[in-house]
Simulated assay, not measured.
Amino acid sequence: MPRQLGDLFLHTTGERACYGPRPRNRPFSKISSSKKVAGDKEVLIWNITAGGARLTSSVSTPGAADVQMVMLRERPCLVIVHARGNEILVTCENSPGHFQELQRMTTTFNPVKVTVVEHMDPSGSTTTFLGVADEGDSHEYMGSFMLWRYDVEEDSFSLLQVISMDDVKWVEMTSHLNDLFLVVVSGAFRGDQQGQVLIYRMDWFDGDGTQALGHYGTAVHSGESDRLTALRANPQFYFVQEAAVEDPVEARFYTLPDGELDLYIIKQDGMVVRFSQKGIHRFWKDGELHAPGKVTLDVWSSWVNGRIVQRLNAGGSSCQDIEKKNFPEEPAVVLEALRRGGVDSQGQPPCPANH
């Protein structure tokens, strides 16, 4: 049996970036990493067992801005964004405790965040997509979001799309039903407002690259036709909407146990704004919660007595003095909300998927 993602716990070492510590109140089966790693440090890889955490391996890197995990050919792999330079490293476990480099990819200037997701396209094929946010340099290089697609036969990622955008700070994808959504957070100014949150949706295009198949609704589920198989080669993200939030820092998609897709955005002042998907592709503001001074966010939920209990872990801390070396340890704040949920045929609340 292949090893599951939850078998590994990941942590990075080194100095913290300006946002300070990033506490996590999540189970050990989840992945955790610091916001930024400076200097020549290692990414440490732990195996979580009933007896506790055991260090199994490490990967030498010039620091790590972000680390994510993904299964490729039934192997656990790490996607590491280097803290210095413009490289993204993909390394996979080829034997227990031993990771070997699979591929290196580059962006234009300064990658800061990576997101990876497995998605089933309209033809029924499952594909792994990898996205990277490159913040660029305001003096010379424009920022961008870059998307790669994994080829199982080649065992490598190939570049699929580049979206130019100033000062890209954050990117996240999620696969929800038949849709693949992407949210991008930019720190650039537009008029007197700082920051943007832009939502994209992937679509598959016809032969001349001009017509989005997704607009035909159920027509894209027309079986294994030659036409649909050929069109699968050119998926692209297109812009859906902008979420009206000023000074955004991070944005996270989350699918509730009842199937509802939400988007959470945490602002520089610690305000968490929640958007819910309404209709086909639009997201509408549903409410706000406040975690003063926090700038990072995790979301999860569970069923309790027939209700969905939703929890938001707000952590980290913002700082004004970027030269400050010693950041104070700040506890994470867990916000909780109760939402009414349904019951199954036996009158019991259904078990939330993947939780």
Rank of each mutant, 00 (worst) to 15 (best):
L5R: 09
D7N: 12
D7G: 06
F9N: 09
L10P: 03
A17K: 07
P21A: 14
P21E: 14
R24G: 02
P27H: 14
I31M: 13
V43Q: 13
I48A: 15
G52W: 09
A53P: 00
R54H: 07
R54G: 05
S58H: 10
S60L: 10
D66V: 06
R73F: 05
P76H: 00
C92W: 07
C92G: 03
P96V: 02
Q100N: 14
T108Q: 10
T108V: 12
N110W: 13
K113E: 15
K113Q: 15
E118W: 08
H119P: 01
G124F: 00
T127G: 02
Y141I: 05
M142L: 14
F145V: 15
R149Y: 06
S156T: 15
S164P: 12
M173I: 03
S175R: 04
S175P: 00
F181H: 05
R190F: 12
Q193H: 13
Q196V: 13
L198N: 01
I199T: 01
W204D: 08
F205W: 15
A212S: 04
D226V: 04
R232A: 15
P235E: 01
Q241F: 02
A243L: 15
V249H: 11
V249Q: 14
E250L: 02
R252C: 02
R252T: 05
L256R: 13
D258M: 08
D262M: 09
D262I: 04
L263G: 07
Y264D: 00
I266N: 07
V273T: 12
F275E: 00
R282E: 15
G287K: 11
A291D: 08
P292K: 09
G293W: 00
L297Y: 07
L297N: 08
V304S: 12
S318N: 13
S318T: 14
N326Q: 11
N326S: 11
F327S: 13
V334E: 04
P349F: 03
P349G: 06
